[in-house]
């Protein structure tokens, strides 16, 4: 399929700037190109997802390196969010979704297929957390939001919960802003703070992998910057997968980038290479802004 025949949505990320900005700012560049890719925390093999008769994604093979940020890019409707939601089986909440293939998550020291029969979704989602596109705090207090996960998993000790809340809020770089009003309603926070609260809420469950579905899509540039800074710090401890519409964001925050188009994984490589020297013609067209 050639790029000329495709009808793609017109939501264009300003990709031309990205190509010039990318080389200086990728974290891959900072680490030096020769670093070998860390071993994967998640291996995806021949993953296909269909919605009724519509194809979501087909035949995707991808490794997500441990303790690093992998960015999923591509035009709207390319399947990147579908792929993301396949990693914690959230697709199944939508009627008519069928999944095939394997998603192997490192779990108690070995890779386990999360689509194998008998997999406990509660255990899976404790290991693979998620942050959504729009901040979606519960209509509860700040601290109640953070300890929502641990509480549901049976932690009742007040001191333990308070400790977990502080740790998660610190990790999400929100502690200093909310430590004096932990019992205030989450709704009173700004959008950016709410999104960091949602990140803290996901971290409080102590996952290995954190999935983020365009976490800055509804935020202003300053809040976006804060969350991007945060991603760099978090990737020391967590495996992060982020869907983004912005090539610059992928360039700024990720070590590895995967490009999706029409439900297929076109190419996945270290971010610097993807931005400067992609192997596939379609990737090149996308990152140079010929379509988007």
């Amino acid at each position: 399929m050639t790029t000329e025949t495709m009808s793609l949505p017109t939501m264009v990320p300003p990709a031309r700037e990205a190509t010039s900005a990318a080389p200086e700012t990728t974290r891959a560049a900072a680490r030096g190109e020769t670093d070998p890719e860390p071993q994967p925390a998640v291996r995806v093999r021949d993953l296909s997802v269909t919605y009724g008769t519509t194809l979501g994604i087909k035949g995707v093979d991808l490794d997500l390196p441990e303790r690093s940020v992998t960015a999923l890019i591509g035009p709207s409707g390319c399947g990147k969010s579908t792929f993301l939601r396949a990693l914690n089986r959230m697709n199944e909440l939508f009627p008519g979704v069928a999944t095939s293939g394997e998603v192997l998550v490192r779990w108690d020291g070995r890779f386990q297929d999360i689509y194998a029969p008998g997999v406990d979704l509660v255990e899976l989602r404790k290991r693979v957390g998620m942050v959504f596109q729009r901040p979606n705090p519960f209509p509860k207090s700040i601290v109640e939001n953070v300890i929502y996960g641990p509480r549901r998993h049976g932690v009742t000790d007040r001191a333990l919960l308070a400790e977990a809340a502080e740790e998660a809020l610190r990790q999400a770089a929100l502690w200093d802003e909310v430590k004096d009003k932990l019992n205030a309603p989450a709704a009173a926070l700004s959008g950016g703070q709410q999104q960091r609260l949602c990140i803290a809420r996901a971290l409080a469950v102590r996952p290995d992998v954190v999935l983020m579905d365009e976490p800055t899509a509804s935020l202003d540039p300053i809040s976006t910057g804060k969350i991007e800074d945060l991603l760099g710090k978090l990737s020391k401890d967590y495996t992060i997968v982020i869907v983004t519409h912005s090539l610059q964001q992928a360039a700024r925050v990720s070590e590895k980038t995967a490009f999706f188009l029409n439900g297929e994984l076109v190419e996945a490589a270290p971010t610097l290479q993807m931005m400067t020297n992609p192997r596939d013609r379609r990737t090149e067209n996308y990152v140079t802004g010929r379509f988007g």
Binding site: R125, K126, F132, F138, R152
Partner: peptide, 20 residues
């Protein structure tokens, strides 16, 4: 959104209904 947030945190369906 609210349901998804709860389920993604590893809450069961019953917990999601009663707590979220």
């Amino acid at each position: 959104d609210l349901r998804h947030a709860s389920l993604a945190l590893g809450a069961t369906k019953e917990q999601t209904i009663f707590s979220a």
